[in-house]
Design a binder for these strands. Structure first.
Lengths: 356, 356
DNA sequence: GTTAGCACTCATTCTTTTAGAGTGCTAATA
DNA sequence: TATTAGCACTCTAAAAGAATGAGTGCTAAC
């Protein structure tokens, strides 16, 4: 059997209606809902076919149909394709979107200083806006270059290292050293570090270089080593990835997710963040079209989210630093709106970061 | 009517049993539970009295009794009084506690570098340990002194200010300036700032001083102003108070809190943090005995927590920087254990911070 | 190929029944 | 006089039963 034109129309109608109501949809509903002028009985036949094809199921014998993951997948793929086509046409219709964009930009600009605060705000706003849960990662430094290091004396045996990367990513690290260090030597160390390391990526700080530096440092080999370790630890991406979540409690708005055990598991996942990290890692490998990716139900790599859908977008700073924004909602989320929002934010962030 | 000795015994037994089971407790249960050798009938009479006195209620006519807030309050007050007395006696029985303390200290020491990470861990461990939700605030700088400021050029019109307070509290702030600044002038500014401000509290950086500085800065008045604003903003306590929460999903372990709407509200409060801030602010005024404070039900200043109890403890760093640790659970939480744990952590943190 | 009609299924809701826990009161007991 | 045994009574929670209605699948007619 084939998915002919009429079946597609009916399938889309079923899914659309289900997205709106969250209730299984019956043949009568569809016969009114769609412009095909068909009787419920005919729709029923088509529905039986669609069920056989695996796009929809009945929760129980005497209920209407709801989409399967395969059904959602079809719907989303179709939507993404249409969107692409539309975009080419609608170039001039951008005013609405631009307005929204501007109002958001204003908000975002308030706090550009602190990337992290900004991202936290993105998560918050997006959650409030969509009524889903959100996550935003800090940008991943991959091949990002060191701008400078600044060592300062904190206490006799403690040094504060301020590490600044391209893109103004700043990290502090307190290093406890075994031997004391004079002010003068600290200065020397500072210069040595900066002349040697400035402009390098983590990958380029290889063994030879380190050996050379340790050589030059003379009696301070040990300290250099500690400082270098700190730098590596600090800028190595694993340790660097922070995830901000927001709107976890939005899931209570969707009955299919809000029973105690599911909600608990899901919120725990959002709070605990470890599995989100895994998710983001895997996600990175995927991203193709527009950097927007949709995971439906079991497609997510995280067990706790198998009743959810997740839509992710990558954003990019200058210097190729990439981060991920994700929206977590029920499978019947408003994919269209979500994708739209994500695209807006994407443009938005690109703008903010590129301009600054 | 008076609370005679026997009534107290029975009341305590009721509450203790209720803490364990979470079920209304009946006369038969108590007649076995307590060593009074009284028949259920007698207990019933006493219970009727206790109800009249407002310490317990029946959820419905044919159920056992559960404690009222007043009942809990009595229980907790009594417990705290007893604990105090015990402490004097048990000086030598500390080994057990000390062991626990040591194992925790080891863990805590791993990451002393980053106070914030440490505190986040405290929240996490405590939540896992107690099965309640927890919150931990960053220490409040009150009359804390500036150790030094370090300005570095980030980009032509951007300066990175690293602000270090006594107790090694570090803050970064990116300042966007309107006019460019030469390397040399940056150095001058650095020196000016440090000679003038080092060792001062926020309160001491008053108007006269600022005026004087601005005077000395000559044409850089504007920049000085911006830097100062940044410093003030950065170390002023309102902006500084961060709250880490953990174990929010633990509340699902207690049926009386885990129905959808209550859970949602509570978790939202924990995620959103604004009302927690208010809580902590109010809490600060209270703290008397041992810095441990118990809020039962409506005693909490936060509406969303009126079905919970909250136990808070203050911890103290050197230099009088104080923070708060809170445990949020159902009213029938194990107060004894919670207080014990908090005291351990208190000692613990004191230790870690004083030694470093 | 489409549709009207009808018997059938099954979740949901409401009602009824039952079981059991626990009480309050009264009268007997020590 | 304080305690206790006994019993009728209350009320919840769980189980069982009945009614409702949405929606289906199938058959036969159009």
């Amino acid at each position: 059997m084939e998915l002919d034109d009429r079946k597609v129309k009916i399938l889309k109608a079923i899914i659309k209606n289900y997205l709106e109501t969250g209730e299984p949809v019956g043949s009568r509903t569809i016969s009114k809902y769609v412009d095909l002028k068909l009787s419920p009985a005919t729709i029923r036949n088509e529905m039986a076919d669609l069920e056989e094809l695996g796009y929809i199921v009945q929760p129980h014998t005497s209920a209407g149909r709801i989409p399967t993951d395969k059904g959602y997948r079809f719907y989303v793929d179709d939507m993404m394709a249409t969107k692409e086509a539309e975009l080419v046409v609608k170039e001039n219709e951008l005013t609405d979107r631009e307005k929204e964009l501007d109002s958001m930009k204003e908000f975002l600009n308030e706090k550009v200083d602190r990337v992290e605060e900004l991202l936290q705000n993105v998560a918050k706003v997006l959650a409030k806006d969509t009524n889903y849960a959100t996550m935003v990662t800090t940008p991943q430094v991959k091949g990002n270059r060191l701008k400078f290091v600044q060592l300062s004396q904190l206490e006799p045996n403690k040094i504060l290292a301020v590490i600044v990367m391209e893109g103004n990513l700043i990290r502090n690290k307190v290093i406890t050293i075994s031997d004391e260090l004079s002010q003068e030597n600290l200065l020397k160390l500072n210069i040595l570090l900066n002349t040697t390391l400035t402009g390098l990526t983590l990958q380029e700080m290889n063994l030879g270089l380190v050996a050379k530096m340790e050589n030059q440092a003379g009696e301070y080999t040990k300290i250099i080593k500690e400082v270098l370790d700190a730098i590596v630890e600090t800028i190595s991406s694993a340790d660097n990835l922070k995830i901000y979540t927001s709107g976890a409690t939005n899931i209570f708005k969707y009955p299919e997710l809000s029973d105690s055990s599911k909600a608990s598991e899901l919120i725990y996942t959002l709070e605990e963040k470890q599995s989100l990290t895994d998710f983001v890692m895997e996600d990175e490998e995927q991203h193709g079209n527009h950097g927007i990716q949709v995971y439906i139900g079991n497609e997510t790599p995280v067990e706790a989210m198998k009743d959810c859908s997740v839509v992710t977008a990558t954003y990019e700073l200058q210097d190729g630093m990439k981060g991920t924004i994700g929206i977590i909602g029920p499978k019947r989320m408003d994919y269209e709106k979500v994708v739209e929002k994500l695209k807006t934010i994407q443009t938005q962030l690109d703008d903010v970061f590129k301009k600054t």
